[in-house]
């Protein structure tokens, strides 16, 4: 039996809903007629974003409190989303994440630990709850924003990269588990996006993607049921090359 397409039930939960990318994705979803739940730490700010989506698109949009680090709350949170939407959500997307300065993470274990906890453990913890709900129902989509940084460790960001690598591997396994249950899993791998996370960092302007464009690519990949999406697509090629640099050579480079 063919799976129902990922967008067949038009409701979605965006975790880390206050991130630049999530707001842009929320607009794409709202445009396509999805009801939304945005969840994040700062609910006052989320309410402003939710109100904007209601004014622009006339879609129902709720703001809920969510802390990626409060693992114990994640089960109740999934139930709360269903209540807010009046149904088990059609899909869920993890957008939250933190990018510590690499040197800080090297020097201070608590920074590195926090990075792993938010980017990986928090995502894994909350997605397991949604995975079970969707698996039981036999449909839905799960997506998370990982990063090209997770494709190969580089001296400039390997602690963050390792957390994202764990997330990517987790999603790959989840996909393997859920595909036969009618649930789609998408790993989104942006390169550099022009968001509040990267504002002020010294990045080549040419390689910065604007969040609207990134969101368009991500939402399209999710709704087409793709397993993986580089954002934008040319990063697939860049990472293909980087992954294939032989170790002997790679260890001598400063990347």
């Amino acid at each position: 039996m063919a799976n129902a397409m990922p967008g067949s039930q038009k409701s979605v939960v965006l975790l880390g809903g206050g991130s630049t990318l999530a707001r842009a994705m929320a607009m794409r979803f709202a445009e396509k007629g999805f009801a939304l739940v945005l969840a994040d730490l700062d609910t006052a700010e989320l309410e402003v974003i939710a109100q904007d989506l209601r004014v622009r698109y006339g879609q129902s949009c709720r703001a809920l409190h969510f802390d990626a680090l409060d693992y114990g709350s994640h089960g109740d949170f999934a139930a709360e989303c269903a209540k807010a939407l009046g149904e088990t959500p059609g899909g869920v997307v993890v957008c939250f994440g933190v990018t510590p300065v690499q040197e800080d993470a090297q020097k201070d274990f608590s920074v590195a630990h926090h990075c792993l906890d938010v980017n990986y453990t928090g995502a894994m913890s909350v997605l397991e709850h949604f995975a079970t709900l969707f698996e039981t129902r036999g449909s839905g989509f799960i997506a998370a924003v990982s990063s090209v940084a997770g494709d190969r460790g580089r001296q400039s960001n390997y602690i963050y990269g390792a957390a994202k690598a764990a997330l990517s591997v987790y999603l790959c396994g989840l996909q393997n588990r859920l595909f036969k249950r009618g649930v789609y899993v998408t790993t989104i791998k942006p390169g550099f996006m022009d968001t509040k996370m990267t504002w002020g960092m010294d990045l080549p302007a040419r390689l910065l993607t604007d969040p609207e464009q990134a969101a368009g690519i991500a939402v399209q990949a999710i709704l087409k049921g793709r397993g993986e999406a580089y954002v934008p697509g040319y990063w697939r090629l860049i990472m293909l090359i980087i992954r294939h640099i032989p170790g002997m050579v790679f260890k001598r480079l400063s990347l």
């Binding site: 402003v48 004014v55 622009r56």
Partner: peptide, 9 residues
């Protein structure tokens, strides 16, 4: 330009 939320209509 990123403080571009509509509040009400």
């Amino acid at each position: 330009t990123r403080l571009n939320r509509m509040r009400s209509f």
